[in-house]
């Protein structure tokens, strides 16, 4: 019995410690005064790695999600003689929910896992310790540029996702199924508002970028420096970020819409 209680206590303490450690790492890395001249090329490199290399997967999945929405929406709205609302349906569904959420999930799978594995590998091969030996702060040199790159890339990726998704819906609804072009766009323009829909979308995207990158970086930084530890940390990154994104999406939606 005492063993059991002790186990519970150890478990809780471990979780709280890791949360505290991640917060400390987070603040140290983002508020550490960066040397702009040195940090900028690092940041550019990381945006290339996190953002530019994720474009293909984001564009392809955005296109197909838009096309599926267009097809399903058209066939269902046809029953109500309301195919004129297709533009509204596709644009609101993508901008309010699917755009930020799906691109964050893809981001967690594509970039988050890679970040964790990379940093875990740096730790396992003791390169982080080597940096500390050379009086280079690994938090500033390794963590901070990746964090900022994630925060910058995520809204851009989600904007691209929304745009291509809406054009995917147009491709199916207008070009293949014969809905009128003007009706598609005017229905959309009447119902989508910059301040009510686009800005909340960007807020969502930035928060998801924040949470995914943070989880990925912390899991990498905190992993056990073995190959098994790295693989566990990578799995934990994808699971935790997906859950965090979906949970946070509900809260943000409840707050903003």
């Amino acid at each position: 019995m005492t063993d059991f209680i002790g186990m519970l206590g150890r478990y809780a303490l471990r979780k709280i410690t890791s949360l505290g450690r991640s917060t400390i790492i987070f603040f140290n890395s983002i508020f550490g005064v960066p040397n702009l001249k040195k940090a900028f090329p690092l940041l550019v490199n990381q945006i290339y790695f996190i953002g530019v290399q994720s474009i293909i997967i984001i564009l392809v999945s955005g296109l197909f999600i838009g096309m599926v929405l267009g097809l399903q929406g058209f066939n269902i709205l046809k029953n109500f003689m309301a195919t004129g609302s297709l533009g509204t349906l596709v644009s609101l569904a993508i901008i309010r929910e699917l755009g930020p959420v799906v691109s964050a999930l893809l981001y967690a799978g594509r970039a988050g896992s890679a970040l964790t594995a990379e940093i875990g590998q740096l730790k396992a091969s003791e390169q982080l310790s080597a940096m500390e030996m050379m009086a280079v702060d690994p938090l500033k040199r390794v963590i901070a540029p990746r964090f900022w790159a994630g925060l910058i890339s995520m809204p851009i990726l989600s904007l691209l996702f929304c745009l291509i998704g809406i054009y995917g819906g147009k491709l199916v609804g207008v070009d293949w199924l014969g809905l009128d072009d003007g009706i598609y766009w005017s229905g959309m323009q009447a119902s989508v508002d910059v301040w009510d829909d686009l800005i909340p979308m960007l807020i969502k995207a930035v928060s998801f970028g924040f949470i995914c990158t943070w989880i990925a970086l912390f899991n990498g930084y905190d992993c056990r420096p073995t190959s098994e530890g790295i693989s566990r940390a990578t799995t934990a990154t994808v699971v935790q970020s997906s859950l965090a994104v979906l949970g946070m999406d509900f809260i943000l939606t409840a707050l903003m819409f």
């Binding site: 953002g51 474009i55 901008i95 851009i156 904007l159 691209l160 766009w185 323009q189």
Partner: peptide
């Protein structure tokens, strides 16, 4: 740098198109 520049530019263009074309 060129690719990252294009990436940022694409983001800005996407935002402008979304605002003008989609949100009217």
């Amino acid at each position: 740098e060129i690719l990252v520049g294009c990436f940022m530019l694409m983001g800005i263009v996407a935002a402008v198109i979304l605002a003008l074309q989609v949100a009217g």
